[in-house]
Amino acid sequence: MASRPMRIRAVEKGGVVEVKVLMSHIMETGQRKDSSGKIVPAHFIDLVEAKCNDKTVLSAQWGPSVSRDPFLSFKFKGGKKGDKLTIAWKDNEGESRTDTTEIR
């Protein structure tokens, strides 16, 4: 199943880049039962990595209690306007997605 692109906003101000990301993912908890009473298996983003050009600026491990369509915000130093900011995620079923934006 093809996922929708992330919405990424990366803004440099005073030497600090603030990044805000909205991902598209069901983030199924593994706690919910379907109408027939069967547990819906957990399906969630478990690994996230952010890079500025080639340098890793954040990496994260998530559990299924991160909200549906996850939001992430973080800050780092050393990025300039025009630099490439890449966010990648992988989920527990092996699906993955990578999106890139330019720092403004």
Partner: peptide
Amino acid sequence: ALFDIPEGSLPDIATRIK
């Protein structure tokens, strides 16, 4: 959620949880 903060990144993160 568990975040690794490399050198140069600020210990300042936000997300949304259930």
